[in-house]
Nucleic acid binder design. Sequence first.
RNA 1: GGAGGGGUGGCAGAGCGGUUGAAUGCGCUUGUCUUGAAAACAAGUAUGUCCGUAAGGGCAUCGCAGGUUCGAAUCCUGUCCCCUCCGCCA
Length: 420
Amino acid sequence: MLSLEQIVRDPDKFRAALVRRGENPPIDRILELDSSRKALIQQRDVDRAERNTVSRAIGEEKRKPTPDEIVEMRETGDRIKAVESDLEGVQAELDAIVLPLPNTPLADVPDGLDAKSNVIVRTSDGATDRYGSAHWDIGPALGILDLEAGASISGARFYVMKGKGARLQRALAAWMLDVHTEEHGYTEIDPPLLVRPETMQGSGNLPKFADNLYHDDETNLWLIPTAEVALNALHQGQIIDPGVLPLKYVAQTPSFRKEHAAAGRDVRGIKRVHQFEKVEMFRFVEPETSDAVLEEMVGEAETLCKRLGLTYRVLKLCAGDIGFQSAKTYDIEVWSPGSAEWLEVSSISTCTDFQARRNNTRYRPEAGVSTRLPHTLNGSGLALPRMWIAVIENGLQEDGSIVVPEVLVPYTGWARIETL
RNA sequence: GGAGGGGUGGCAGAGCGGUUGAAUGCGCUUGUCUUGAAAACAAGUAUGUCCGUAAGGGCAUCGCAGGUUCGAAUCCUGUCCCCUCCGCCA
């Protein structure tokens, strides 16, 4: 959520920032509503002060209220209720406007309204003119991926991994978690996958993106579309003690997405599915450090690609292409020889104080000073079926077998997936 | 699923419907004393919001949401969460 206070203080700045994202925010209406909100609060408080004074006096003097006082205070009470109901209406309209507004892009985010304006920051060494078989052919041929079984069990965009295929995915996840916990200093978390509406709202997924989320009506719980949702909520409503930040969390969870918006795209194979595993990094940091931390997290994700020997590139997303809650995002893409395209395997963002404000997560910089909002950052490290695709397609040998990257061998227990 | 008990400040823990934003203890901060520390003593120690340049002041908050009342931490209703026992279960 954007700060109402800051919008009111500098409306032009917010309008300009949101226009860069292709939004047309009703800033004038917000200003109008905010000033009537403030006026109503004042009216209400004057009446409440009056009521408190009279009640306190009656209590102090240990007497019964006079009939006049009772009548007068009833009127005051009615007036308070009337003003409160007006206030509620104003507040509801404000929420309805402000809650769906996305975060404002940082100054160094490139201009542009769609993916065409994203900037390639760097590309690793490695071939990008390499073509080969696609995972949807290789996987079934080796008996490690069964797309028909996925479809028959659950429908389109579901898959089944088998034997060494399943093991390879588990190895990838375990290895990535180990690198993050042992080398990058993250604390591993195993969070709930079903969350309350408040939690979904805190991350920014509700109310705006309900149509991409799975939901259980009976319990009113939502399936997470990424571990970010749960990790972000870890300190919901809390004031983090001095000296505790930065907090670094990593989790491997399934992600559940309806993918309505992407209907018809990436339909072959397992590039875009309704349920996939992902290792997610998440940090709570002091605002001053968040820019440097974002670069550091990109480096952490790159490390994984490098050690797997994959060709990858880093993109800086333009203002119109960053996610709702993001203020700046880098994507990491790996080369897929099979589909002859770059696959997005990581999206790393700083959400500045946008999520912290929504969640009411605060920290105290030092004892005795007032609280501040931390910045939150999240990033895939990395997304699984797509990394599986890259490893399979890049490891494909002349004879049809797959050689897996050396770093994974301790986790798989074997170095090669043989032909049947 | 059934039967009970409970949610109060950083923590523990009081709180007949009326000077209760909240006793007391612990913790923490500052000061006095001390060569220093400890002890003792004194003062301070929640969050949010509105007005105000500020000083300061108003209002709200005792899980959450409603209700009763001139007045609610206290009474009523709903709801969420936690604990204990029984049942069921990986």
